[in-house]
Every structure is written in C-alpha cells, then in structure tokens.
C-alpha cells in the first residue's frame, strides 16, 4: 500500500517508524479531545451547581 520512493522513506517506512510517529500523534490528539470533553462537562456541572446555590442575574447581563 505504501510506496517507498527514496532512501529516507525506505528507512522511515520500512523500519515501521512512520507508523510509530503517526500513532503517537493520534494518541495525543485523542487524549486532548477526551480531556476537552471532560473539562466541558465538568464546567457545565459546576456552572449549574453555582446557579442553583446562588440564584441571580447571569454574569454576562450584569454591569
């Protein structure tokens, strides 16, 4: 599937290192995404809790 057209790529792909590099990047991206999803839901929960315990006008509308 993967064509090795020059010596550098012959080494990079042939040794399997390209897949390792791609795997590391994908793991980092997926890890960041999971972190962002969790952070988003936690902030939502915290926001709802604050609203319940301290009812009042929203901050954006308050001058």
């Amino acid at each position: 599937m993967i064509l090795q057209v020059n010596p550098l790529e012959g080494f990079f792909f042939g040794s399997g290192k390209a897949m390792v590099a791609a795997g590391v990047i994908i793991i980092i991206i997926l890890g960041l995404a999971i972190w962002m999803f969790r952070m988003e839901s936690r902030m939502n929960r915290l926001n709802q809790r604050l609203d319940m315990e301290n009812p009042g006008p929203s901050d954006s509308d308050k001058s």
Binding site: V5, N6, E9, A18, A21, L30
Partner: peptide, 15 residues
C-alpha cells in the same frame, strides 16, 4: 484531525 495525522505520516513523497 486523526485522519490528517495518519495521512501526514504514511503517504510517501513523490519523485
């Protein structure tokens, strides 16, 4: 982004 990361590393350079 996962697709891009994979393609960036596995598609070879042309001659």
């Amino acid at each position: 982004l996962v697709y891009v990361a994979a393609m960036s590393f596995i598609v070879p350079l042309g001659p």
